[in-house]
């Protein structure tokens, strides 16, 4: 490992320790905000691991997340809680793998539609199945509080960052960078592009599903409309792209300001949140095509140029 890598690792550890202390010095309001930020950090970072190099816009986050919440909701009475998280992860990864097999040969538009429809599809099917059983939702009663949820999410975030860092150093990570640049060259260099993409797509699938399983106790009562809300998918896309997918920490830079922005909008202009999301998309395309990371890198390069 190089010196900068040690420095980055040290920095990451300090951030993690400070963040883990939030429940001890923050007010409940900040803890709630912390859960939101940690959740989106996990979702957006894992989303960018796949969508950054491949340029596929996945709107399946809500589908995986919803599956995860249902794993907890259904399993909590029968299995120990700690078993539910890996089960959710495996289910998310398998579903993602199937989606990937079906769509990743095709062009990006098809993938977007497929993933957007997936959440709606699962939602309708679960709603229907619950109607047949005569229920509308499920209770998730645990003694897990906001604190425990927050720490679990932080732990998951640490895992995602570690995983992302390892993938970045691996042959798979290198293959994905090549695919992102030129898929034809990638294939002619001997890369099985479809397999690489499917494998990588399983990461956000598993992570979003585990996130859903962790968050479920917070909702207490789980309904399909809540668990599979499509707005979650869009928010994750905006946050990740706003921060920038070029670097592992990029999405995080988008998550924090956008969370504060949505909090602020929800407080003062509660009916305008959709409008704000729309504007965020336009800002990304027209003003920040590389996200905040692109701004930061550009400023750095200019500073270096000025001193050199």
């Amino acid at each position: 490992m190089t010196a900068t890598e040690w420095r980055d690792l040290g920095l990451a550890l300090v951030v993690l320790v400070v963040a883990a202390g939030l429940p001890f010095f923050g007010t409940p309001y900040y803890l709630t905000l912390g859960v939101t930020i940690a959740m989106y950090a996990v979702l957006a970072t894992s989303w960018a691991l796949f969508s950054g190099p491949t340029h596929y816009i996945s709107l399946a986050t809500a589908a995986f997340f919803g599956l995860g919440t249902y794993v907890t909701a259904v399993g909590i009475d029968h299995l120990p809680y700690w078993l539910l998280l890996p089960i959710a992860g495996v289910i998310g990864a398998v579903v993602a793998g199937l989606v990937g097999l079906a769509t990743l040969r095709l062009s990006g538009v098809y993938f977007v539609i497929f993933t957007l429809g997936l959440a709606e599809f699962i939602r309708q099917v679960i709603t229907w199945a619950q109607n047949l059983m005569g229920t509308r939702g499920l209770y998730v009663l645990t003694d897990l509080g906001e604190r425990e949820i927050y720490w679990q999410l932080l732990g998951l975030a640490a895992l995602v960052f570690l995983g992302g860092w390892l993938i970045g150093r691996s042959r798979l990570g290198f293959a994905l960078r090549i695919i992102g640049d030129d898929e034809e060259v990638a294939r002619h260099s001997g890369i099985d592009t479809a397999r690489a993409k499917v494998m990588l797509f399983m990461v956000p699938g598993a992570v979003a599903s585990i996130t859903g399983a962790i968050i479920a106790p917070r909702y207490v009562y789980i309904e399909p409309a809540l668990a599979f809300a499509p707005i979650l998918s869009f928010t994750v896309v905006i946050m990740a792209l706003l921060g920038g997918t070029g670097r592992l920490w990029g999405p995080l830079v988008g998550v924090i300001p956008f969370t504060f922005l949505t909090e602020w909008v929800a407080r003062w202009f509660p009916n305008q949140s959709t409008l704000v999301m729309g504007l965020a998309f336009l800002v990304i395309v027209f003003l920040l095509p590389k996200g905040f990371v692109g701004l930061i890198d550009g400023a750095r390069a200019r500073a270096r140029g000025a001193f050199a």
């Binding site: 042959r171 290198f174 990638a186 260099s189």
Partner: peptide, 9 residues
């Protein structure tokens, strides 16, 4: 160039 070295035959 490495792209050719890593995944080729």
């Amino acid at each position: 160039v490495k792209a050719g070295a890593v995944f080729g035959h």
